[in-house]
Design a binder for these strands. Sequence first.
DNA 1: CGTGGCTGCCC
DNA 2: ATTCTGC
DNA 3: GCAGAATGGGCAGCCACG
Length: 583
Amino acid sequence: MSTHFIELCKLCEQLEKEASRNLKVNIVVDFLRKISSEEVKFAVYFITGKFPSNLLTLNVGYSTIYQIIKKLSNISDNQYLTEYNKTGDMGETAKKIFEIYPPKTQKTFFEQPSTLTEVYEIFQKIAEFTGESSRVKKQRLIESFLSKITPLEVKYFIKNLIGEMRHGFSEGLMEEAVAKAFNVELEKVRLASMVTGDLGKVCEFLKIFGKDGIEKISLTVFQPIKPMLADLAKNPAEALIRHGGKTSFEFKLDGVRIQIHKKNSNVKIFSRRLKEVTEAFPEIVEKIKHEIKADSFVVEGEIIPTTKNGKPLPFQYIMRRYGRVKNLEKTIKNIATTLYLFDLLYLDGEVLIGKPFYERRKKLEEIAPNQMLTPQLITSNPVEAEKFFEEAIKNGHEGLVAKQLESAYTPGIRGKKWLKIKKVLETLDLVILAAEYGHGYRHDWLSDYYLAAKNLEVKPIFEKDYVSFADYVEKIHNDRFKVVGKTFKGLTDEEIKTLTGKLKNLILEKHGRAVILKPKIVVEVAYSEIQKSPLYSCGYALRFARIVRIREDKTIDEIDTTEKVKEIFEKQFKTTTSNFLER
DNA sequence: CGTGGCTGCCC
DNA sequence: ATTCTGC
DNA sequence: GCAGAATGGGCAGCCACG
């Protein structure tokens, strides 16, 4: 017995309206119970709005969908904008538009509503189109499907295409629903979801084999596992207290987190989101094959970009290696990598994720050479811990990760067993030069801000001097300011609301959902690093910028300059990698 | 054949 | 990735 | 305290288009 997609859409509408998490879970529990084992995994994907990333890659985003909506309904940009501004949601906007301007339907006979299986097959086909004119084929397929279904189905089909559900029911609550629907302990569902990376499959398994089926799901070599996440701590001393007085500190390295699976001579490398990236790192594969003394294992670690001497390079360099297929050999010569391992999840037939961290680390030390291990210090002394933190920074790393010695590997759960402690840089005082209306629940507020520093080196401006919106904003202000980043983080909803009121009085120009502002509002901005920017005209950008507070006491003459931004950028790498700047 | 826009994924 | 918010 | 929503910079690949 198959389930109609429209039933699932109605369920999502209920979730959207319901605030209570418990009730949301109950609604989904009922749905999962009555659905067939063939379709239950599709329901899991469609409700959470996420397909396992190794299963389907659609290569369809906002832009494509926007074009499709426009084409099918034949509306203008302004009509779309007016409708979008009411909700800030693309799926809802399409639903409203199609109710008023229904697409010309191609159906000549009465069509049955689509089943979950049929809808999934559409997604599969979208993913499968590659190569020449694949974009057109994807687009045509979506167009023909959207013109056959109801506006409500359009809404959720589109939401699934972009993966933004906004109904407050994501993977965490789905795990609860699955546990409840099949009468299994939540922890067991979580574990199964983590070792398979596919909650839909777990659900299908439960449906077919009943509640005992879940015992059969366990870590398997070449089946990537969801990584354990860390919470934030302010400093090493706080981490010590939260871990009960004694803990393990490791350098926090700024690269890409990977897990490496090996069985006999076969090696695979997976990313944090379980994508296989083996091909990008042939030198790592060789190291793993020759330098680790075990036949089969799953290890976890970080690959960082380094000079040939092993000194860390900025994060941007690893991105030139990550996922690279073209010019691999040449890039390898220019950007070396260093692998640091920090965990062992499986070794020669034994699953270790339930074992305490200190035991896993000990076994890791037995099979891996010392220089391949993340530097570690186990201590109960806050002074020593602080020294270790300083040492990490001095060596060009991000800070420390504290790991509770007794803790099991609980992938996905952001608990307090692992704590990250990151270095803090001096803040910058910047002016808000432009802003954008937000999306979803923030659609009525100017919630995204362009941050700019004072520019002392003003050069003559030419008509054609800009390519991006940020450049245009600078031009409007005669280049007196330079944009160094954008942020939506740091302010509370109340502050955003109040600020929106103030900013509306400063509008110089409107551009779609963006506004250019008179330079007036000064904010103190924190960030984790200053990066080289190919996007902004001053050449620098803030990484992870967030507003600390609004500086009512400061005028725009008192904000920081691009010179200062440059100084901080250069200071960042002076101690470690002085020579990379010249390259 | 080069380039720009879009997408996915890393942090 | 970071931050805030409702449950 | 957890789960979810909102959304940053920047990299490579890939396709569309001139």
